[in-house]
Design a binder for these strands. Sequence first.
DNA 1: TGTGGTTTCC
Length: 580
Amino acid sequence: RMFDDARRALVGMMGSGVPVSVASLVSVVPACGVEQEQGFGLALHGLALKAGLDSVVNLGNALVDMYGKFCQVEASMQVFEVMPERNEVSWNSAIGCFLNSGLYGDVLAMFREMSERGVMPGSITLSSLLPALVELGYFDLGREVHGYSIKRAIDSDIFVANSLVDMYAKLGSLEKACTVFEKIEVPNVVSWNAMIANLVQNGAETEAFRLVIKMQKDGEQPNSITLVNVLPACSRMSSLKTGKQIHAWSIRTGLIFDLFISNALIDMYAKCGQLSLAQNIFDLSEKDDVSYNALLLGYSQSPWSFESLNLFKEIRSAGIEYDAISFMGALTACTNLCAFKQGKEIHGVLVRRLQSNHPFLANSLLGLYTKGGMLDTATKIFNRITEKDVASWNTMIMGYGMHGQIDVAFHLFDLMKDDGVDYDHVSYIAVLSACSHGGLVEKGKEYFSQMRAQNLEPQQMHYACMVDLLGRTGQLTESVELIQDMPFHANSDVWGALLGACRIHGNIEVAQYAAEHLFELKPEHSGYYTLLINMYAEAGRWNEANKIRKLMKSRKVQKNPAYSWVQSGNKLQAFLVGNG
DNA sequence: TGTGGTTTCC
């Protein structure tokens, strides 16, 4: 409203023939930037030129800044370059303009130029420079800037300190970030948020939540940015309860109307498997392309993958912006649904719409084609990827293993090592499952001990692979021993592998043992009950089969609906397969 | 004239 008043006053002044003053322009131009009033801003610039006021430093600075906020880099530079006189503010405004438009290299170039010209960078310069260094990944320079700020005694400026915290956390180490953070006398909400965000991104979720509590004790209330930062921590810890608390909190405080918050909530609910809650938020909130992508990705990784394809169609027909991430969601959905024809079609659209060698999209395509057994196509795509990452290799190894071409899988694993790729625990899941497919117990054991020697501690999935491998080849006793020797409690993947092996070899006793654990770990998972019931039935042990059936009933376990999907008209529809 | 924020694979 203040802006409108100022505008009215100015228009009045012009109407009454009073010459525009520098002071009035300097007070309204910045507001144009903030309010994104591009048309009016341009008119003011015209007025300034006509009145010959454009050589006044303060006004020039305001114009440089205004165009910067409009992301009109050229216009901003034009004003900057013709300024007869410049001060530190001029340089800061120009730097801010580049930062705003994501031209980080230019931020640095401007910073260097101002230093060379004898204009001393101050705290405001540094708080724009540091985020640019983060984007550029220039850690050494960041450290130098820190040193400089200490020399000039501006390191205690809260903006500089906060930028330093973020810079160290993102480029150097969380420890250094903590050191800077702890030196801040009175951290503000930005300081806390910077620490919390980086803790979450480094997998220190518990510590992040601890800080959220601590900031409140220190008298600082979490804002929308705090919540957006901790929501991914909820899904990563599968702490739906905390996620719901944050949801409730955002409703109480009105932060729910923040688009970032609703999007982060959609993502959180989707990743926690609560697709209907995610859909609810989506339906009730303002939406942008990120909202669509978050829901699309959520569905694609859920048992309702087909909804993801519906959403993708909706996005395209409604003219909503979509990007590589949308394609990834759609391709993932096709992969999960084994909808390979649909996947190929989407691949076609993708080639027409985006550059087809997009790094993470290529990996999604690999997933699609390997799962579909189209290994030649996958290999062609794989060979064209200029920067293969560990996931590209892993997907290929997994794909060849999955389809019984285990020698190729092992060969690829060796090639990856030769290529100097930083292979990870997933790479070992890939080769171990290849061993499983081929029944190669000794080779599996070899890989298993090899990964330990590489300081990669076996995780649940690796044990599950080994249990599967030993179990399939009939070594159920060894499987059980391996589980009992695990350094942590086996999860349902591991017990599930054991149960599967028992099924193959008809070993009911061990199956019971595995099932006991599974009923405890996944009481709602109907498949385990069904499997055990079938085993009892096949052995003619009807009483025991009935006992499990009753247990299922008492626990209100519903048979998993096996969804399938068909295309009807323009929409994909799910229908239930079997008698439910 | 300035700092922190949502969607990315096996």
